[in-house]
Amino acid sequence: MNTLKPKILLVENDQAILQLMEILLKNMGYEPVLVENGIDALQLVRREPPAMILLDIMMTPISGWEFLERLRSEPAHKEIPVILFTASTTVMERMAQMNDPRLGILHKPVTPSELKRSIEQYLL
């Protein structure tokens, strides 16, 4: 059964949010994979690509944007849907410039139903 669950990678450096999202995503029937930074996340994607990535922007050592650039530079991972999961308001412009149909955004904080709706919209 486990193999049928879509794997969702969450890249987020806030522990409290990681813990919450793990429960929420599990409840929604997904298999959450939790990573605290972009470097680890890239390695994980290369090892076993997820069905979707939820990506925080303000992270160290590499920001969400840098992670996204490196991810999209690898042809194998161009198609993975990414939802920016951020508290920042200044991302819209940059998003518009990227013109990536597989890129969405969720503004923190979100309700579980908003999260679910958004994931369902972008999940392949």
Binding site: A16, I17, Q19, L20, M21, A87, K108, P109, T111
Partner: peptide, 11 residues
């Protein structure tokens, strides 16, 4: 900064 800690509460 206020948005982030609201997420766990809300969730």
């Amino acid at each position: 900064e206020l948005r982030t800690p609201l997420q766990p509460i809300m969730g």
